[in-house]
Computed example of a mutant assay.
Amino acid sequence: MNNNTSLIWNIVLTLAVIVLYFLHFSGSNTGAAGTASDATGGRRIVYVQVDSLLRNYDYFEETQKELENKRFQLENELTNRGRSLENEIQFFQQKAQTMTLDQARATEAQLGKKQQDLIAYRDRSAQTLAQQEADKNSELYDLIYQYIEKYNKSNQYEYVLGYSKGGGILFADSTLNVTQKMIEGLNKEYKAKSGSATAAKDSADKK
């Protein structure tokens, strides 16, 4: 398999941090009084644990399973095609001495083309799968970003930080942690969208 088809979900962590990083609403009431848990130096700040968010976000989990199934199916298909071609080559090698020179050359050319076609198919499939993963990562980015904007309309935080082990934030007060609220809200929206999509599909199938 091409390395492009390996797990690309590490990119998601980077994307999520970018999404959550210093979301600032200009013109917000920077001097407005907040609770002791979310006010720091006159700024309203909260944070989200990125790893936990992704681990518990239903969209991320289901999408990862979907892509893993596609990778598994592609690997199996390539393995089966490769074995089939290998068997053909072995059969040709066994029968080559009984063929005329022209027959041997023609068969060898056919096998060479099959091998090239298989390599080209592998590369195309790997690129397609990599693009699908990139699209899903982008969609994940958008869903998180859009929800944070919606969430912040009622909370008016100046900064929503993305906290992850080994990241740029070395310490975060647990009272500023809104991860669970984000997870619940994201999963609620995803469940509603999934339900609407399923209902629409069922309605279309009945027609």
Rank of each mutant, 00 (worst) to 15 (best):
M1N: 09
N4S: 12
I8T: 04
N10M: 05
I11H: 07
L13S: 03
T14Q: 14
T14M: 12
T14A: 13
A16V: 05
A16G: 03
V17A: 11
F22S: 14
L23H: 11
H24Y: 10
H24E: 15
F25A: 07
G27R: 10
G27T: 02
S28H: 08
N29E: 15
A33F: 00
A33Q: 12
G34D: 11
G34Q: 08
T35F: 02
T35I: 09
T40F: 04
T40P: 08
G42I: 02
I45N: 04
V46H: 07
Y47T: 00
V48D: 15
D51C: 04
D51M: 05
R55N: 13
N56I: 01
D58R: 14
F60I: 05
F60M: 07
Q64V: 00
L67N: 14
N69C: 03
N69W: 03
R71N: 11
F72K: 15
N76W: 02
L78T: 00
L78A: 03
T79A: 14
N80R: 13
R81A: 09
R81W: 05
G82N: 14
E88D: 15
F91L: 06
Q94H: 07
K95P: 03
A96Y: 10
Q97G: 13
K113P: 06
Q115R: 15
Q116W: 03
I119A: 15
I119W: 09
A120T: 12
Y121K: 12
D123W: 05
R124I: 01
S125E: 11
Q127P: 03
L129D: 10
L129Y: 00
Q132Y: 04
A134M: 10
D135T: 07
N137L: 03
L140G: 01
Y141A: 05
Y141P: 13
L143S: 05
Q146M: 03
E149I: 01
Q156K: 13
Y163G: 05
S164Y: 11
G166Q: 09
L170P: 09
D173L: 03
D173W: 00
S174C: 01
L176P: 07
T179L: 06
T179F: 02
Q180A: 05
K181P: 08
G185L: 08
G185N: 08
G185S: 09
L186K: 11
N187S: 06
Y190P: 07
Y190V: 00
A192C: 07
K193V: 01
S194E: 13
G195W: 01
S196F: 02
A199L: 10
A200R: 12
K201T: 11
D202K: 14
S203L: 06
D205N: 11
K207M: 08
K207Y: 07
K207T: 01
